[in-house]
Design a protein around this nucleic acid. Sequence first.
DNA 1: TGAACATATCATTATATAATGAAGTGAAGA
DNA 2: TCTTCACTTCATTATATAATGATATGTTCA
Lengths: 102, 102
Amino acid sequence: MTLNSVESKVRFLESLADKTRLRIVEALREREKTVSQLVQELGASQSNISGHLRLLKISGIIKSRQEGKYVYYSLSSSVIAEFLTKLEDLLIAMKREALESA
Amino acid sequence: MTLNSVESKVRFLESLADKTRLRIVEALREREKTVSQLVQELGASQSNISGHLRLLKISGIIKSRQEGKYVYYSLSSSVIAEFLTKLEDLLIAMKREALESA
DNA sequence: TGAACATATCATTATATAATGAAGTGAAGA
DNA sequence: TCTTCACTTCATTATATAATGATATGTTCA
C-alpha cells in the first residue's frame, strides 16, 4: 500500500466522518436538493451548511448546478450511495458479531 | 435515517480517517502483529501507536491477545478487510468517472 | 531479586477544524 | 432600479485530537 493511496483514502473518509456532512450526504441520497432545503431539513445555519457543501464538493463526493437563484446539490456518483449501503451492512455485521461473541 | 445511526457511522469513519490508524489497519490486514512490529513498520513512536491501537480497539475495529510480554493485534472481523477493499474500489471508480467527465 | 524488555498511561503542547455572525455576491421580480 | 432572496465567503472563537516525552505496569529470564 503506497502512502499516496493511504492519504487519498483518509481524505475521503474525513469528508464523511462528520455528523453534519454525513447527514447532508444521506439527505442527497434521496434526491438533489437546494442549500435552503438542506438548511431546513438539517436545522443548521446556512453558512455552516454552505461550508460543509464546499468541502464535500472539493472532495468530489457531491456536485452542484445552478438554476436561477437556487443551487442544487446531488451526489457526484452512484458509487457514493453504494458505499454508504456497504457501511450500513458493515455496522450491522459488526454489531451481530459482537453480540455472538458475548 | 436515525440520528443514532448517523452517529455510529461517524464514529466508525473517524476511527479510520487518520493516516496512522489507517496504516495500522492496512498492516493488520496481512496478519496479526505486535505493538513493536507496528512501531517499527510505521516508524512512529511507541506511545503514539499504542494510543491509536487503544482507539481502534474501543471502536471495535481491532482486537488483541497477550502472549507473554507481547500483545498481538489483529482485525476484529473479516468485514473490516472487505470494507477496505470496497473503499479502494470506490476511489478507483471516482477517479475514473472524474477523468471521463473531463 | 533485579535487569531488560514490551506495552500502556498521563500531562502537555500543537494543530486542525467546526460553529458562529457579519458582510459580500449575484439572480429575480416588483 | 431597488428590494428581496439564495448562497458564499471571511474573521473569530471554541473544541477536539494527534504527537511528544516521561513515567508506570507487567512479563521474562538470568
